[in-house]
Design a protein around this nucleic acid. Structure first.
Lengths: 204, 204
DNA sequence: GTCTATACAACGATAGAC
DNA sequence: GTCTATCGTTGTATAGAC
């Protein structure tokens, strides 16, 4: 659209003059459209149109729609190493609070639409669930729980994930009130004890 | 819908002999296919084939695919009153346990695919989220929490929902191990205290 | 001159509508 | 059944960078 899809006359064939980065434009457009429409709802043509290029460019640069999806949506907007470090910076007894607070502020500021897109991808595209699982378990949960150093750390990790995912589903996707509009600190007070118990408390 | 007036004598041609109810057969088939494939994945043709009728019948009876979806999926064969009664049959101190156990045994026996379908509908179909929310909050959560009789019952209800939805997402949709394979009683031991605190404990 | 990023046309499949 | 629209994808000619 604003990207200069058709600048007055018909788009010219051939290589564009220097500086344009079709690949990056496609990733930006794909992120937006996948977020809005979901994997199946997003069409290659719509993404290409938003990027101001031809649909064939998707196959040229990413091989397929699925390749573009992997590049655009599954490359999350945060560094797992940074995240783990930030969570571990402090007392283990407050880890639950930091996790809930970080989770909510992160997704609140990104608008929640990204989280919805992620859930939509997971529910409709088996590949996404697998990739996300490996990513989370290996790079975030693994690092954090190794530092906590306690038994059943894999089970505890999935328990933590369950409460966080559910909180995101209710807050961002389904938007059940009043939870969807509850301020972050109230949420921390309510949910952090749950996370803390899953991390370091008795679970059986 | 756009039916009713046209189901008289004008539709004689091709009508099946005695007793068969194409409309009901379509709803049954649609329920199964929508559950299995999600809204986008379910095709009108597949539904019609399962019902043993022509695809044109969908348009005839329900106007469109979306009309059929509304009739089939959003009217679940589900008794909220029964559910609420079953949950309330016992001590309030064990309510968390009963909720987790009922949730898991219900969805475990239906295979988990149904839960996935529900989440898929919610994430991809805004209408479904609204209808489901009203349904749950009004008929199930409302009744249960009124009996518990405590402050902030709406907030508590959404907190409970968040843990249950998240547990289902991890167990049935994303299938994160080991939670996905953990037996029901171990899950109850781990998660019930969370639910119980959301219901009757301090949350702020 | 060579390479390649690009646009365009068209294909086969498949959907919902009529 | 047929029609029409649209999907993801592929083949190919070409404009421009190097």
């Amino acid at each position: 659209m604003t990207k200069g899809a058709t600048q007055g006359a018909a788009r010219r064939r051939g290589r564009r003059p220097g500086g344009t980065d079709t690949r990056a434009a496609l990733i930006d457009a794909a992120r937006a459209v996948f977020i809005e429409q979901g994997y199946d709802g997003a069409t290659v043509r719509a993404i290409a149109a938003k990027a101001g290029v031809d649909a064939a460019m998707v196959n040229h640069w990413f091989g397929s729609k699925e390749g573009l999806f992997a590049e655009a949506v599954l490359k999350l907007p945060f560094s797992p190493h940074e995240l783990a470090e930030r969570l571990l910076d402090g007392d283990v007894d407050n880890l639950g609070q930091r996790i809930v607070r970080t989770f909510l502020t992160t997704w609140d500021t990104t608008g929640g639409g990204v989280f919805t897109a992620l859930m939509r991808s997971i529910t409709s595209h088996e590949l996404a669930a697998h990739v996300l699982r490996d990513f989370l378990i290996k790079h975030v949960a693994g690092q954090v729980l190794k530092s906590v150093g306690i038994d059943h750390h894999e089970f505890r990790a999935t328990l933590v994930a369950s409460q966080l995912v559910g909180m995101g589903m209710v807050r961002y996707v389904a938007q059940f009130e009043p939870l969807a509009s509850t301020d972050v600190e109230t949420m921390v007070a309510a949910v952090a004890p749950t996370i803390q118990r899953y991390l370091t408390g008795p679970i059986s």
